[in-house]
Amino acid sequence: MSTRGGIAAATGTEALTTELPVGRSTGWWGMVMFVATEATLFACLLGSYFYLRFQHGGSWPPGDISKPKLLVPLVMTGVLLPSSLPVVWAEHGIRKGQRWRLRAGLAATLVMGATFLILQASEYADKLREFTITTNAYGSLFFVITGFHGLHVLVGLTMISWLLAASLRGGSFGAHRHDRVRNAAIYWHFVDVVWAAILFTIYLSPRL
């Protein structure tokens, strides 16, 4: 198909009246809407961070708090972002009816997510020596944003464990029945992507 023909086809009546999106289940839409409202919540949270930062003026972080160090959070990122891959792999597996892939993929994600939380605990232990949630608004923002995300990771891990438990039982999932797997996967990808935004906001932006 030539480019010109492509443009003509794409701007033709038929292409312009093509139904997009199509064929999703109610569960998919429900999860997408839930993620949309959660994403808005995180957007407000990160927006509040920037609002307080720029309203504060002056040096940021305020007070005696030093700029956040990057090593641990980058390792955390390295653990969490790739943890979506086993979920994708597991989901593709169960669509083909390969239950072992579902189990293995979920287990791998579980391990990576748990590692992330352990690293976050060590990060907290480090930060708490410098400031706490009550030190000032920066401290409040830092712990509430990362804590709220950590809570989401915990919820995501609960969902993954729950899926894993159901898949171990047998009679739960197969090529024709994997809505729950996909919905939990959407949630997990969301938790992942939000971390990237948090990494940028909390750890990278004070250095810009």
Partner: peptide, 19 residues
């Protein structure tokens, strides 16, 4: 105009509509 757009043209058309 081509009679029936392919899947990519349909996708492009649908996205154009939503834009």
């Amino acid at each position: 105009m081509s009679a029936h757009p392919g899947p990519r043209a349909r996708l492009a058309g649908g996205l154009l509509l939503w834009y």
